[in-house]
């Protein structure tokens, strides 16, 4: 008999199944849905959580997410890192995010092209940045800092916006493409945000999608929006996440999938959250489109092969 080797500290003992987000529909996780999701015959492709809700040390919130994580792939979506902030990335918040990522080993980590914190405090909203060289350098540096700490690339999400800046010198798509090229991050394409921003700023959503670097997109978000009016009485869309995905957004989604292939697709519903079957119905609509159009897409099944 050979000697028994001492236990190596290098051996990783993951508590959770490994693997990427599948190119299927996922849902934003709400604690009140956990039991229904676990009991459901329909198996959702993955779940996504807001990182900030799991930054506590322990307690029942973690029991719920652990129960989900042992059964499903998980995506961690930050809403509070304030990547566009003039005052820099808050190192404490980055550490909190790193702890969530280490704890749950998610298949994906994403954040927003936005800011939410300043010296005065945290505004709990995703606020816009002007698109110019100065903001670009700042955002690229911040993403680098995040990716260095997390030791993995993140995805950056395109915003929904209501105002423009005189200081803007670049298109949003050029700005995002250059950030991805310089920082090495991937992209999260929120198609509802595209539709909301296009309506609010008078762009054509199709022109935006034509200019967007679809080859860098690794995840899609879909959500519902509300209608309001701007100062001139014209339609102003609000990124409300409080209702089903609109028909226009489903049509754009079909176009993106037939172009880019099947991609992990999250349905978000954060306000006036319905019972699980209502959210499941939205997820199944996305699943049907992925199954119908994904295999025939121009970019093919690049993601399924990964």
């Amino acid at each position: 008999m050979t000697q028994v080797a001492p236990t190596s500290p290098i051996v990783t003992t993951s508590r959770f199944p490994d693997g990427p987000l599948p190119p299927r529909a996922g849902a934003g996780l709400k604690p009140e849905h956990i039991d229904a999701i676990l009991a459901d015959d329909y198996r959702i492709g993955f779940l996504e959580v807001h990182a900030e809700n799991y930054m506590g040390d322990g307690g029942p919130a973690h029991r719920g997410l652990e129960a989900i994580r042992v059964k499903f792939p998980l995506s961690v979506h930050g809403v509070g890192l304030s990547i566009g902030s003039e005052s820099g990335i808050n190192p404490d918040h980055l550490e909190r995010l790193a702890r969530v990522v280490e704890r749950y080993e998610p298949a994906m980590v994403s954040e927003h092209l936005a800011w939410s914190s300043h010296d005065a405090g945290y505004f709990n909203d995703l606020l816009p940045v002007p698109y110019n060289a100065r903001t670009l350098d700042r955002v690229v540096a911040h993403i680098g800092q995040i990716q260095d700490r997390l030791k993995r690339p993140i995805l950056l999400e395109n915003p929904s916006t209501y105002v423009a800046f005189e200081q803007t010198t670049m298109s949003e798509t050029d700005f995002i493409r250059e950030i991805a090229q310089k920082s090495g991050c991937g992209l999260l394409l929120d198609i509802n945000n595209v539709f909301v921003s296009a309506t609010n700023h008078g762009w054509k959503p199709m022109h935006y999608l034509r200019d967007f670097p679809l080859e860098l997109v690794e995840e899609i978000h879909l959500a519902g929006h509300a209608e309001d009016t701007d100062d001139e009485g014209d339609l102003l869309l609000i990124d409300a996440h409080d209702r089903p995905v609109s028909n226009e957004v489903w049509k754009l989604y079909e176009i993106v999938i037939s172009q880019a292939g099947a991609l992990p697709t999250l349905v978000e519903w954060d306000n006036d959250v319905p019972e699980w079957p209502v959210l499941r119905r939205e997820a199944r609509l996305a699943d049907a489109i992925l199954a119908r159009l994904g295999p025939a897409s121009l970019l093919g099944s690049r993601h399924a092969a990964e």
Binding site: S82, H93, R96, S117, Y122, N124
Partner: peptide, 8 residues
Amino acid sequence: PPGSAVIF
């Protein structure tokens, strides 16, 4: 206003 993004 809140001091951090951990709203709880």
